[in-house]
């Protein structure tokens, strides 16, 4: 597969998740394991530009695919801007869910087929798969809204 634009070989048994493959084998520790059951979104990465939860993905299923993690998003449309606005709008506190929030925001904005900027409610609904226990939700929505408009 390709990860963050580079071809990589990930030779793992089939029970290894994409998340563990990225973290333990490739040393990409930006994606986080918060629940390992697809319920928190901290492990969100982009697969061919679409956001997925990498904890429920088996690495073998993604052979030949293009994976982007937080470490590689700066070169994507909106990536660097989101990183900047998350800081400016205080869109995180502890920072543990942040990689997933940013990847998810990139995916969400790419999924839209409307040219009109998203409403705050639309952002909230679209981002609801990414939990933030610190409660930085307002700042996250601010950051995404800023980038999307």
């Amino acid at each position: 597969m390709r990860v963050n634009g580079e071809p990589v070989v990930l030779d793992v048994p089939p029970q290894v998740s994409l998340l563990d493959g990225l973290r333990d084998r490739l040393g990409l520790t930006g994606p986080k394991k918060g629940c390992d059951q697809g319920a928190c979104g901290a492990c969100t990465v982009l697969a061919d530009g679409e956001r997925i939860v990498s904890c429920l993905a088996l690495a073998v299923q993604y052979e030949g695919r293009e994976i982007t993690t937080i470490e590689g998003v700066a070169s994507l449309p909106d990536g660097a801007a989101l990183q900047r606005e998350f800081i400016r709008r205080d869109g995180f506190q502890c920072g543990f869910c942040t990689s997933g929030q940013i990847c998810s925001a990139i995916g969400m904005l790419a999924e839209r087929d409307s040219d009109a900027p998203p409403t705050r409610d639309e952002i909230r609904e679209g981002m609801s798969g990414n939990l933030c226990r610190c409660g930085a939700y307002n700042g996250i929505v601010d950051a995404i809204e800023e980038v999307a408009t």
Partner: peptide, 21 residues
């Protein structure tokens, strides 16, 4: 002020305990 750890926490560079190898 923006947080001093903003850059590392938005790029995945911040090393949490499970990220130590």
């Amino acid at each position: 002020f923006d947080r001093v750890d903003g850059a590392i926490k938005t790029t995945g560079a911040a090393k949490f305990s499970a990220d130590q190898t």
